[in-house]
Simulated scan of single mutants.
Amino acid sequence: MSGRFSLGVVGYGEVGRIFTAGLGPQVDWTGAWDIRFADPAACDEPLAHAAGRGVEACDGVAALCAKATLIISAVTASNTLAVAREVAAHIRPGSFFLDLNSASPGTKREAAALIDAAGGHYVEAGVMTSVPPYGIRVPM
């Protein structure tokens, strides 16, 4: 990708926060969606964190996909395919889907097929080490 773009992150935990902070200065818009945003018992901290950093807390994947041209999936491996299915239902053609999750090769192939069939561009990233010490410069 060249030039500026709009960034959407699914999974606003440690890795999602690192990527929104690291890429934020290079984007026109940054948004995130996390299942905790919809949980009254767990939403206060992640919503406050997002608001304090200029990250729009989207009310779902559809709202995130409506604005994002690069969508980063930073969820647990067990949620990889569910996120790909949800994003595939809403991704705008030509948008990129960067899969950072440590799921099996078969799951990655299924996720890629869903995103590609919806007109998106699936990008698999094998994250080679822990993200926190490296931030967005983590080897992939």
Rank of each mutant, 00 (worst) to 15 (best):
M1H: 14
G3V: 09
R4T: 12
F5Q: 10
F5H: 14
F5G: 07
F5I: 12
S6M: 13
S6N: 15
L7P: 02
V9M: 13
G11W: 10
Y12C: 12
Y12E: 09
Y12Q: 10
G13M: 12
G13L: 12
G13H: 11
V15C: 06
V15F: 02
V15D: 04
G16R: 09
G16Q: 13
R17L: 06
I18N: 05
I18W: 05
F19C: 04
T20A: 06
A21W: 07
A21V: 10
G22N: 12
L23Y: 09
G24M: 10
P25G: 03
P25Q: 07
W29Q: 00
G31Q: 05
A32R: 06
D34W: 00
I35A: 11
I35E: 04
D39I: 07
D39G: 02
D39V: 05
D39Q: 13
A41E: 13
A41N: 11
A41D: 12
D44E: 14
P46H: 08
L47P: 04
A48K: 14
A50H: 06
A50R: 03
R53G: 03
G54L: 05
V55I: 09
A57F: 01
C58W: 01
C58Y: 01
C58K: 04
A62N: 01
A62P: 00
A63S: 07
A68V: 09
A68G: 05
A68Q: 02
I71N: 08
I72R: 03
I72Y: 01
V75I: 13
T76H: 01
T76N: 11
T80V: 03
T80S: 15
L81K: 00
V83S: 00
A84V: 03
A84G: 04
E86P: 00
V87K: 01
A89Y: 02
H90C: 13
R92I: 07
R92H: 08
P93L: 06
P93K: 06
P93M: 08
S95R: 09
F97G: 02
L98A: 11
D99Y: 06
L100W: 10
A103N: 05
S104V: 01
P105V: 08
G106H: 08
T107A: 09
T107C: 11
T107S: 07
K108F: 04
K108I: 14
K108V: 12
K108D: 07
K108E: 09
R109K: 15
R109E: 15
E110R: 08
A111G: 08
A111Q: 06
A112V: 00
A112W: 08
I115P: 00
D116M: 08
A117Q: 10
A117M: 02
Y122P: 03
E124H: 10
A125S: 14
M128S: 15
T129Y: 02
S130Y: 11
V131W: 08
V131F: 11
P132I: 10
P133G: 05
Y134Q: 12
G135W: 12
I136M: 09
R137D: 14
R137P: 04
R137N: 14
V138H: 10
V138T: 15
M140Q: 11
